[in-house]
């Protein structure tokens, strides 16, 4: 595991108020675009100001610019904005054809078919694990996830596996963020348990943590190009896979999937970058 996780985005951080003006305006513009995620609900300048904590005059300037650039649509009738189709041009396409995802997809689908379950490749964003790739076996009707679904960071097996991978300083910082995001929730025991499992066997098992009667197993995929970024996890109905079976059968199989994905992605041409 690379110790460079400090480079991991803290996307829920407010835009910096200091620094060069060009950096500030870009940071604020990005913050504003993200304020429409994940459901792209139409919002007025006032609502956007409240959601982002930016001054309303700033928001008005930014929405005007973003509309002129085509990334926001303006709804005359309600004086609201929302993301326009052009926002799909901001990296979405090349991202979905990234080597990592294209190659992982083939292995994941075979794994889902062979074991008749749902397998997910996810990345952390804010307080969620965002599902990038979702493959299901023929009869796998458990857990309702699709590409784009957001699973709560501390409650999903994948989130717990990711948290367990953090270096101590980042881990401590994240615990403070979790306390703010989930006030009153007792998260520590489950996270410590997951960390102990990861240390012992490189995967962790959760029991009905996201949905009742669904158990999950997760492990980090270590690509040289993006250490600590992707997590692979699978979900199964608890009646078919009680926790002991997850531990003894599914976990090792998931590690084998992880090994296959990693082996497929040993960097060829940009190996020098990692």
């Amino acid at each position: 595991m690379n110790g460079e996780l400090g480079t991991f985005p803290r996307s829920d951080m407010p835009a910096p108020d200091t620094g060069k003006p060009e950096v500030r305006v870009l940071a604020r513009g990005l913050l504003l675009l993200k304020a429409f995620c994940p459901r792209n609900v139409a919002r007025t300048n006032g609502e956007l100001a409240a959601a982002t904590g930016l001054p309303k005059a700033t928001v008005s300037r930014l929405t005007a610019t973003l509309t002129r650039l085509g990334y926001l649509d303006y709804l005359n009738r309600t004086a609201q904005y929302r993301l326009g189709h052009a926002a799909v041009a901001l990296g979405f396409g090349p991202l979905s054809t990234l080597d990592i995802r294209v190659r992982a997809r083939a292995h994941m689908q075979r794994f889902a078919d062979d074991n008749d379950l749902v397998v997910v490749l996810a990345v952390r964003e804010g307080m969620a694990m965002v599902c990038h790739e979702v493959c299901r076996g023929r009869g796998a009707l458990t857990i309702r996830v699709a590409a784009g679904s957001r699973l709560k960071l501390p409650h999903s097996a994948m989130g717990r596996a990711w948290i367990a991978s953090l270096a101590p300083a980042q881990h401590a910082a994240l615990m403070l963020e979790l306390d703010q995001a989930f006030p009153g929730a007792v998260l520590r025991p489950a996270l410590d348990e997951a960390a102990a499992q990861i240390a012992a066997s490189r995967f962790c098992v959760t029991v009905s943590s996201l949905e009742p009667d669904v158990n999950s197993v997760a492990t980090l995929v270590d690509f040289a190009q993006s250490p600590g970024e992707y997590v692979v996890g699978c979900s199964v109905p608890a009646f078919r896979y009680p926790p002991e079976r997850c531990q003894s059968e599914l976990g090792p199989r998931l590690l084998e999937l992880r090994r296959r994905i990693e082996a497929d992605l040993v960097p060829a041409h940009d190996g020098g970058a990692a």
């Binding site: 480079t7 996307s11 926002a87 979405f92 590409a147 784009g148 250490p227």
Partner: peptide
């Protein structure tokens, strides 16, 4: 810093990152 790019560790290179996916998916 906003999660739109990922800096490849120990290098001067960047990759597209999760916020691009989240934005596109929201649309």
């Amino acid at each position: 810093a906003q999660g739109f790019l990922f800096r490849v560790p120990d290098s001067d290179a960047f990759r597209l990152h999760v916020a691009c996916f989240v934005l596109g998916q929201a649309v």
